[in-house]
Amino acid sequence: MTKTAIILFNLGGPDRPESVEPFLFNLFNDPAIISLPNPFRFLVAKLISRKRAPIAREIYDHLGGGSPLLPNTQAQASALDAALSDIGEVKSFIAMRYWHPMTAETVQAVKAFAPDRIVLLPLYPQYSTTTTASSLRLWNKEAEKAGLSVPTHVIGCYARSSGYIRSVAELVRKAYDGMNGPRRVLFSAHGLPKKVVDKGDPYQWQVERSAEEVVKALNIPDLDWIVCYQSRVGPLEWIGPSTDAEIQRAGNDGVGVIVCPIAFVSEHSETLVEIEMEYRELAEESGVPAFARVPTPGDHPLFIDALAKLVREAVLRPVGVDCGEGTRICPAQFGKCACRQVA
Protein backbone atom coordinates (compact mmCIF):
# COMPACT_ATOMS: atom_id res chain seq x y z
CA MET A 1 0.00 0.00 0.00
CA THR A 2 1.37 3.41 -1.02
CA LYS A 3 2.08 5.75 1.87
CA THR A 4 1.48 9.43 1.13
CA ALA A 5 2.48 12.27 3.43
CA ILE A 6 0.68 15.56 2.79
CA ILE A 7 2.32 18.62 4.28
CA LEU A 8 -0.03 21.52 4.96
CA PHE A 9 1.91 24.78 5.08
CA ASN A 10 0.53 27.71 7.03
CA LEU A 11 1.73 30.82 8.81
CA GLY A 12 1.22 29.68 12.39
CA GLY A 13 0.14 31.72 15.36
CA PRO A 14 1.00 32.10 19.05
CA ASP A 15 -0.78 29.59 21.25
CA ARG A 16 -0.54 31.66 24.47
CA PRO A 17 0.33 35.24 25.46
CA GLU A 18 4.01 34.49 26.16
CA SER A 19 4.36 33.07 22.63
CA VAL A 20 3.44 36.36 20.96
CA GLU A 21 6.85 38.04 20.99
CA PRO A 22 8.86 34.99 19.81
CA PHE A 23 6.23 34.38 17.11
CA LEU A 24 6.64 37.96 15.88
CA PHE A 25 10.43 37.63 15.98
CA ASN A 26 10.28 34.51 13.80
CA LEU A 27 8.02 36.38 11.37
CA PHE A 28 10.20 39.46 11.00
CA ASN A 29 13.44 37.44 11.00
CA ASP A 30 12.33 35.71 7.78
CA PRO A 31 14.42 37.11 4.88
CA ALA A 32 11.28 36.92 2.72
CA ILE A 33 9.67 39.49 5.04
CA ILE A 34 12.69 41.69 5.84
CA SER A 35 15.41 41.37 3.24
CA LEU A 36 18.28 42.82 5.28
CA PRO A 37 21.38 40.65 5.73
CA ASN A 38 22.24 39.42 9.21
CA PRO A 39 23.06 40.56 11.84
CA PHE A 40 20.95 43.58 10.82
CA ARG A 41 17.79 41.55 10.13
CA PHE A 42 18.11 39.82 13.51
CA LEU A 43 18.43 43.15 15.31
CA VAL A 44 15.54 44.75 13.40
CA ALA A 45 13.35 41.69 14.05
CA LYS A 46 14.16 41.89 17.76
CA LEU A 47 13.27 45.58 17.85
CA ILE A 48 10.01 45.27 15.91
CA SER A 49 8.81 42.17 17.76
CA ARG A 50 9.47 43.75 21.16
CA LYS A 51 7.67 46.94 20.13
CA ARG A 52 4.65 45.21 18.54
CA ALA A 53 4.21 42.44 21.14
CA PRO A 54 2.01 44.45 23.58
CA ILE A 55 -0.34 45.48 20.76
CA ALA A 56 -0.45 41.95 19.39
CA ARG A 57 -1.16 40.48 22.83
CA GLU A 58 -4.20 42.78 23.09
CA ILE A 59 -5.41 41.42 19.75
CA TYR A 60 -4.98 37.80 20.87
CA ASP A 61 -6.74 38.59 24.16
CA HIS A 62 -9.92 38.80 22.06
CA LEU A 63 -9.24 35.20 20.97
CA GLY A 64 -8.62 33.78 24.44
CA GLY A 65 -4.90 34.57 24.47
CA GLY A 66 -3.86 32.60 21.40
CA SER A 67 -4.55 31.99 17.73
CA PRO A 68 -7.19 29.48 16.56
CA LEU A 69 -5.16 28.80 13.41
CA LEU A 70 -3.67 25.47 14.53
CA PRO A 71 -6.99 23.86 15.58
CA ASN A 72 -8.51 25.10 12.31
CA THR A 73 -5.66 23.53 10.35
CA GLN A 74 -5.91 20.27 12.32
CA ALA A 75 -9.59 20.04 11.34
CA GLN A 76 -8.64 20.56 7.70
CA ALA A 77 -5.94 17.88 7.95
CA SER A 78 -8.38 15.33 9.42
CA ALA A 79 -10.99 16.07 6.77
CA LEU A 80 -8.42 15.78 3.99
CA ASP A 81 -7.17 12.42 5.25
CA ALA A 82 -10.73 11.10 5.24
CA ALA A 83 -11.32 12.41 1.71
CA LEU A 84 -8.22 10.62 0.41
CA SER A 85 -8.60 7.29 2.21
CA ASP A 86 -9.00 5.45 -1.10
CA ILE A 87 -5.49 6.23 -2.45
CA GLY A 88 -3.61 4.22 0.16
CA GLU A 89 -2.29 5.19 3.57
CA VAL A 90 -2.52 8.98 3.80
CA LYS A 91 -1.41 11.18 6.65
CA SER A 92 -1.52 14.97 6.67
CA PHE A 93 1.13 16.83 8.64
CA ILE A 94 1.15 20.52 9.56
CA ALA A 95 4.24 22.69 9.06
CA MET A 96 3.86 26.21 10.40
CA ARG A 97 6.33 28.87 9.32
CA TYR A 98 6.58 30.98 12.48
CA TRP A 99 5.22 28.91 15.37
CA HIS A 100 4.74 25.30 16.40
CA PRO A 101 4.57 22.79 14.86
CA MET A 102 7.58 24.29 13.08
CA THR A 103 8.98 22.86 9.87
CA ALA A 104 11.95 21.13 11.50
CA GLU A 105 9.61 19.27 13.88
CA THR A 106 7.35 18.24 11.03
CA VAL A 107 10.22 16.96 8.90
CA GLN A 108 11.20 14.58 11.71
CA ALA A 109 7.59 13.37 12.07
CA VAL A 110 7.34 12.76 8.32
CA LYS A 111 10.67 10.91 8.31
CA ALA A 112 9.36 8.60 11.07
CA PHE A 113 6.21 7.97 9.00
CA ALA A 114 8.48 6.83 6.13
CA PRO A 115 6.21 7.77 3.19
CA ASP A 116 6.66 6.62 -0.40
CA ARG A 117 5.80 10.09 -1.63
CA ILE A 118 5.26 13.58 -0.26
CA VAL A 119 2.82 16.25 -1.40
CA LEU A 120 3.54 19.80 -0.26
CA LEU A 121 0.23 21.67 -0.10
CA PRO A 122 0.36 25.32 1.04
CA LEU A 123 -2.82 26.64 2.61
CA TYR A 124 -2.23 29.78 0.56
CA PRO A 125 -4.39 29.63 -2.60
CA GLN A 126 -2.38 32.44 -4.21
CA TYR A 127 1.39 32.10 -4.58
CA SER A 128 3.72 34.69 -3.06
CA THR A 129 7.41 34.83 -2.35
CA THR A 130 6.49 35.92 1.19
CA THR A 131 4.35 32.86 1.97
CA THR A 132 4.55 29.77 -0.24
CA ALA A 133 8.09 30.36 -1.47
CA SER A 134 9.35 31.01 2.05
CA SER A 135 7.71 27.81 3.32
CA LEU A 136 9.08 25.73 0.45
CA ARG A 137 12.59 27.08 0.91
CA LEU A 138 12.58 26.21 4.61
CA TRP A 139 11.09 22.76 3.97
CA ASN A 140 13.82 21.92 1.45
CA LYS A 141 16.51 23.11 3.84
CA GLU A 142 15.20 21.11 6.80
CA ALA A 143 14.47 18.00 4.70
CA GLU A 144 18.02 17.98 3.35
CA LYS A 145 19.43 18.48 6.85
CA ALA A 146 17.38 15.52 8.15
CA GLY A 147 18.18 13.27 5.19
CA LEU A 148 14.54 13.09 4.14
CA SER A 149 14.78 12.17 0.47
CA VAL A 150 11.40 11.11 -0.92
CA PRO A 151 9.75 11.88 -4.30
CA THR A 152 8.01 15.20 -3.65
CA HIS A 153 5.15 16.86 -5.48
CA VAL A 154 4.56 20.56 -4.86
CA ILE A 155 1.25 22.36 -5.40
CA GLY A 156 2.40 25.93 -5.89
CA CYS A 157 -1.01 27.62 -6.07
CA TYR A 158 -4.68 27.03 -6.75
CA ALA A 159 -6.07 30.52 -7.16
CA ARG A 160 -8.80 29.41 -9.59
CA SER A 161 -9.46 25.86 -8.31
CA SER A 162 -13.16 25.22 -8.84
CA GLY A 163 -13.88 23.71 -5.43
CA TYR A 164 -12.08 26.52 -3.63
CA ILE A 165 -13.93 29.12 -5.71
CA ARG A 166 -17.30 27.42 -5.19
CA SER A 167 -16.78 27.16 -1.41
CA VAL A 168 -16.00 30.87 -1.18
CA ALA A 169 -18.92 31.76 -3.47
CA GLU A 170 -21.32 29.73 -1.34
CA LEU A 171 -20.21 31.55 1.80
CA VAL A 172 -20.41 34.97 0.11
CA ARG A 173 -23.86 34.17 -1.25
CA LYS A 174 -25.17 33.37 2.22
CA ALA A 175 -23.92 36.71 3.56
CA TYR A 176 -25.22 38.56 0.49
CA ASP A 177 -28.70 37.05 0.74
CA GLY A 178 -28.79 37.84 4.46
CA MET A 179 -28.36 41.58 3.89
CA ASN A 180 -31.03 43.93 2.62
CA GLY A 181 -30.58 47.05 0.52
CA PRO A 182 -27.65 48.10 -1.64
CA ARG A 183 -24.50 46.15 -0.72
CA ARG A 184 -20.92 45.88 -1.91
CA VAL A 185 -18.62 42.87 -1.65
CA LEU A 186 -15.07 43.68 -0.59
CA PHE A 187 -12.69 40.85 -1.46
CA SER A 188 -10.05 41.61 1.15
CA ALA A 189 -6.60 40.02 1.00
CA HIS A 190 -3.49 40.49 3.09
CA GLY A 191 -1.47 43.29 1.51
CA LEU A 192 2.12 43.35 0.30
CA PRO A 193 4.65 46.14 -0.14
CA LYS A 194 4.35 47.39 -3.72
CA LYS A 195 8.06 46.77 -4.31
CA VAL A 196 7.52 43.03 -3.79
CA VAL A 197 4.94 42.92 -6.59
CA ASP A 198 7.07 45.16 -8.81
CA LYS A 199 9.85 42.55 -8.55
CA GLY A 200 7.62 39.93 -10.16
CA ASP A 201 5.61 38.45 -7.29
CA PRO A 202 2.32 37.10 -8.79
CA TYR A 203 0.26 37.34 -5.60
CA GLN A 204 -1.81 40.41 -6.46
CA TRP A 205 -2.54 39.15 -9.97
CA GLN A 206 -3.68 35.79 -8.57
CA VAL A 207 -5.83 37.39 -5.85
CA GLU A 208 -7.63 39.40 -8.52
CA ARG A 209 -8.22 36.25 -10.59
CA SER A 210 -9.65 34.45 -7.54
CA ALA A 211 -12.08 37.30 -6.93
CA GLU A 212 -13.15 37.35 -10.58
CA GLU A 213 -13.88 33.61 -10.48
CA VAL A 214 -15.95 33.96 -7.31
CA VAL A 215 -17.96 36.75 -8.95
CA LYS A 216 -18.60 34.51 -11.97
CA ALA A 217 -19.72 31.68 -9.69
CA LEU A 218 -22.08 34.02 -7.80
CA ASN A 219 -23.74 35.06 -11.07
CA ILE A 220 -25.47 38.05 -9.44
CA PRO A 221 -26.44 40.64 -12.06
CA ASP A 222 -24.64 43.99 -11.64
CA LEU A 223 -22.87 42.82 -8.48
CA ASP A 224 -21.02 45.71 -6.80
CA TRP A 225 -17.58 44.40 -5.81
CA ILE A 226 -13.91 45.32 -5.49
CA VAL A 227 -10.59 43.76 -4.45
CA CYS A 228 -8.80 45.48 -1.57
CA TYR A 229 -5.95 44.82 0.84
CA GLN A 230 -5.61 44.81 4.62
CA SER A 231 -3.00 44.52 7.40
CA ARG A 232 -0.58 47.18 6.22
CA VAL A 233 2.42 47.74 8.50
CA GLY A 234 5.50 49.94 8.20
CA PRO A 235 6.32 53.01 6.09
CA LEU A 236 6.58 51.34 2.66
CA GLU A 237 4.00 51.88 -0.08
CA TRP A 238 1.63 48.89 -0.19
CA ILE A 239 -0.62 47.61 -2.91
CA GLY A 240 -4.14 48.99 -2.80
CA PRO A 241 -6.79 50.06 -2.46
CA SER A 242 -6.85 49.49 1.29
CA THR A 243 -9.79 47.77 2.93
CA ASP A 244 -10.05 50.67 5.38
CA ALA A 245 -10.47 53.17 2.54
CA GLU A 246 -13.05 50.98 0.80
CA ILE A 247 -15.14 50.71 3.96
CA GLN A 248 -15.09 54.49 4.32
CA ARG A 249 -16.06 54.85 0.64
CA ALA A 250 -18.97 52.48 1.18
CA GLY A 251 -20.11 54.71 4.03
CA ASN A 252 -20.01 57.74 1.76
CA ASP A 253 -21.97 55.80 -0.86
CA GLY A 254 -24.53 54.58 1.65
CA VAL A 255 -24.10 50.89 0.79
CA GLY A 256 -23.74 47.86 3.04
CA VAL A 257 -20.45 45.99 3.14
CA ILE A 258 -19.74 42.27 2.90
CA VAL A 259 -16.06 41.56 3.59
CA CYS A 260 -14.77 38.31 2.11
CA PRO A 261 -11.23 37.29 3.16
CA ILE A 262 -10.32 36.01 -0.29
CA ALA A 263 -6.72 34.94 0.47
CA PHE A 264 -7.34 33.26 3.85
CA VAL A 265 -8.68 29.71 4.20
CA SER A 266 -8.56 29.50 8.02
CA GLU A 267 -9.77 31.77 10.79
CA HIS A 268 -7.15 33.73 12.71
CA SER A 269 -6.53 37.21 14.12
CA GLU A 270 -6.85 38.97 10.77
CA THR A 271 -10.32 37.55 10.16
CA LEU A 272 -11.74 37.33 13.68
CA VAL A 273 -10.28 40.56 15.05
CA GLU A 274 -9.18 42.82 12.19
CA ILE A 275 -12.22 42.18 9.99
CA GLU A 276 -14.90 41.12 12.46
CA MET A 277 -14.10 43.66 15.17
CA GLU A 278 -11.94 46.51 13.87
CA TYR A 279 -13.50 46.81 10.41
CA ARG A 280 -16.99 46.40 11.82
CA GLU A 281 -16.29 49.32 14.18
CA LEU A 282 -14.85 51.36 11.30
CA ALA A 283 -17.97 50.61 9.25
CA GLU A 284 -20.22 51.89 12.03
CA GLU A 285 -18.12 55.04 12.40
CA SER A 286 -18.19 55.56 8.62
CA GLY A 287 -21.97 55.32 8.33
CA VAL A 288 -22.05 51.95 6.56
CA PRO A 289 -25.68 50.81 6.92
CA ALA A 290 -24.93 47.08 7.24
CA PHE A 291 -21.80 44.96 7.72
CA ALA A 292 -21.06 41.24 7.35
CA ARG A 293 -17.89 39.16 7.48
CA VAL A 294 -17.72 36.08 5.27
CA PRO A 295 -16.21 33.06 7.09
CA THR A 296 -13.10 31.41 5.64
CA PRO A 297 -13.57 28.04 3.87
CA GLY A 298 -12.03 26.09 6.78
CA ASP A 299 -13.15 22.47 6.46
CA HIS A 300 -16.08 23.30 4.16
CA PRO A 301 -16.76 20.10 2.14
CA LEU A 302 -16.28 21.86 -1.21
CA PHE A 303 -12.90 23.23 -0.11
CA ILE A 304 -11.70 19.89 1.27
CA ASP A 305 -12.83 18.22 -1.96
CA ALA A 306 -10.80 20.83 -3.85
CA LEU A 307 -7.67 20.06 -1.81
CA ALA A 308 -8.19 16.33 -2.29
CA LYS A 309 -8.53 16.83 -6.06
CA LEU A 310 -5.30 18.85 -6.10
CA VAL A 311 -3.47 16.02 -4.33
CA ARG A 312 -4.88 13.34 -6.64
CA GLU A 313 -3.82 15.29 -9.71
CA ALA A 314 -0.41 16.24 -8.32
CA VAL A 315 0.70 12.64 -7.71
CA LEU A 316 -0.05 11.81 -11.37
CA ARG A 317 2.44 14.46 -12.55
CA PRO A 318 6.23 14.36 -12.42
CA VAL A 319 7.75 15.51 -9.15
CA GLY A 320 8.36 19.25 -8.93
CA VAL A 321 6.38 22.46 -8.54
CA ASP A 322 3.14 22.89 -10.47
CA CYS A 323 0.13 25.12 -10.09
CA GLY A 324 -3.15 23.43 -9.35
CA GLU A 325 -4.32 23.82 -12.94
CA GLY A 326 -1.47 21.71 -14.29
CA THR A 327 0.08 24.57 -16.23
CA ARG A 328 1.49 27.97 -15.38
CA ILE A 329 -1.26 30.60 -15.25
CA CYS A 330 0.75 33.75 -14.47
CA PRO A 331 1.77 36.17 -17.24
CA ALA A 332 5.46 36.30 -18.09
CA GLN A 333 6.12 39.52 -16.18
CA PHE A 334 5.62 37.65 -12.91
CA GLY A 335 9.02 36.04 -12.94
CA LYS A 336 8.86 35.02 -9.28
CA CYS A 337 6.17 32.44 -10.05
CA ALA A 338 7.63 29.00 -9.29
CA CYS A 339 5.19 26.94 -11.34
CA ARG A 340 6.76 25.36 -14.38
CA GLN A 341 5.15 25.29 -17.77
CA VAL A 342 3.47 21.92 -18.23
CA ALA A 343 2.48 20.85 -21.74
Rank of each mutant, 00 (worst) to 15 (best):
F9T: 11
N10T: 07
N10M: 08
P14V: 11
D15R: 14
R16H: 11
S19Y: 07
E21A: 11
P22I: 12
P22K: 07
L24I: 13
N29F: 06
D30S: 04
A32D: 13
I34F: 14
S35N: 13
N38F: 01
F40I: 15
F42K: 14
K46A: 07
R50M: 10
K51D: 09
K51S: 14
R52H: 05
E58H: 13
D61V: 03
H62R: 07
L63F: 11
L70H: 07
L70A: 05
L70I: 14
P71K: 09
A75E: 12
S78D: 14
A79Q: 11
A82C: 01
G88M: 02
G88H: 04
S92R: 01
I94Q: 05
M96I: 07
M96A: 13
R97H: 07
H100M: 07
A104L: 02
E105R: 04
A109W: 00
V110P: 05
L121I: 02
P122D: 12
P125S: 11
Y127E: 12
T129V: 13
T129K: 10
T130S: 11
T132K: 13
L136W: 10
N140S: 06
E142R: 07
A143F: 01
E144G: 14
H153G: 12
V154Y: 00
I155L: 02
I155Q: 01
C157A: 15
Y158F: 15
Y158R: 06
S161E: 15
S162Q: 14
I165A: 05
A169E: 15
R173L: 00
K174Q: 11
A175K: 12
Y176W: 15
G178P: 08
G178T: 12
P182Q: 12
P182H: 11
R183C: 07
R184W: 04
F187Q: 13
S188L: 03
S188W: 10
K195W: 12
V197N: 00
K199P: 02
K199T: 10
Q204F: 05
Q204P: 00
V207I: 15
E212K: 15
E212M: 10
K216R: 15
L218S: 08
L223Y: 03
V227Y: 10
Y229A: 01
R232Q: 13
P235N: 09
I239K: 04
I239P: 00
T243E: 15
D244E: 12
R249P: 02
R249D: 10
A250H: 02
D253M: 07
D253C: 05
G254K: 11
C260L: 05
P261I: 08
A263W: 05
A263I: 03
V265W: 00
S266Q: 06
H268M: 03
V273Y: 09
E274T: 11
M277R: 04
R280W: 02
E281C: 09
E281F: 05
L282G: 06
E284W: 10
E285W: 00
S286R: 09
V288N: 03
V288A: 01
R293F: 03
R293V: 05
P295S: 08
G298K: 03
D299P: 00
I304P: 01
D305T: 07
L307Q: 09
A308T: 01
L310Y: 00
E313V: 03
V315S: 10
V315H: 08
L316T: 14
R317V: 02
R317A: 14
P318S: 12
G320V: 12
V321S: 01
I329K: 15
A332N: 04
Q333H: 13
K336W: 06
C337F: 00
C339Q: 09
R340H: 13
